[in-house]
Amino acid sequence: MTDARYSPTQITLHWLSAILVLVIIALPYGSDLFAGLLGGAGGVFTLHKSLGLLVLLLTVLRLLVRTRDGAPQLLPADARLNQLAAKAGHALLYLLLLLMPLSGLLFGKRPLNLFWLVEIPPLPLSDAVREVAKTFHVTAQYLLFALILGHAGAAIWHHRVRRDNVLRAMLPARD
């Protein structure tokens, strides 16, 4: 394969998003650990929700940059099934990176304190809508976990087994 690469902007946004998503996941699961650092359980969820909205913004920005810069052709042209799997996996990841923060925003009944700077009132929604959003949010997290593991596993497989440039295409360039 060629030395096709994502743009430096795409690489930066990808890794920033990845780090933020891992922190977002860790916060509620490690709330006992983080509560002392963030002023209690409320602080844990303030940061969880704030970072979630930041990921939503970054995802929209990533999609705009991807539209502008495109994506490199990293898989062989005759590997149609692999290409389809990669496109489907990426599309589902992007979809969840959009829907998870939105569903979290929709089910909240309390004001959102965005990074302890700005308070956003809850949306005027029925309890039924909030419950659907909460169910989606809590259930879809497991699909997101599976997709993240599959995404990372595929990147490692390409690097260690296939020994191609798929992973290198998303790593910062070496001088």
Rank of each mutant, 00 (worst) to 15 (best):
L149D: 01
S50C: 10
P111G: 05
T135M: 10
A85R: 10
L93V: 07
G40F: 06
G43S: 08
L95Q: 06
V23T: 11
P172V: 12
G36D: 05
A88R: 02
T9D: 01
P111T: 06
S50N: 12
A91Q: 10
S103D: 09
I156G: 01
S50Y: 07
L105A: 12
G89E: 09
L98C: 11
Y29A: 02
A26S: 12
T59C: 07
P172R: 12
H158T: 04
S31V: 05
R174G: 05
L144I: 06
L143S: 04
Y94D: 06
T135N: 14
P122F: 10
I24A: 03
G30P: 00
L102P: 04
R168K: 15
G104S: 01
K87Q: 14
P8I: 08
E119Q: 15
L57W: 05
L27G: 02
R168M: 08
A91L: 15
I148Y: 01
W15V: 00
V166T: 15
T135S: 10
P121V: 10
L143R: 09
T46I: 12
M1D: 11
Y142N: 13
R130Q: 13
L149G: 15
P76R: 13
A154H: 06
G70F: 13
T46W: 05
G39I: 08
L64F: 15
A41I: 15
V65E: 04
Q10D: 00
G89C: 06
T59N: 03
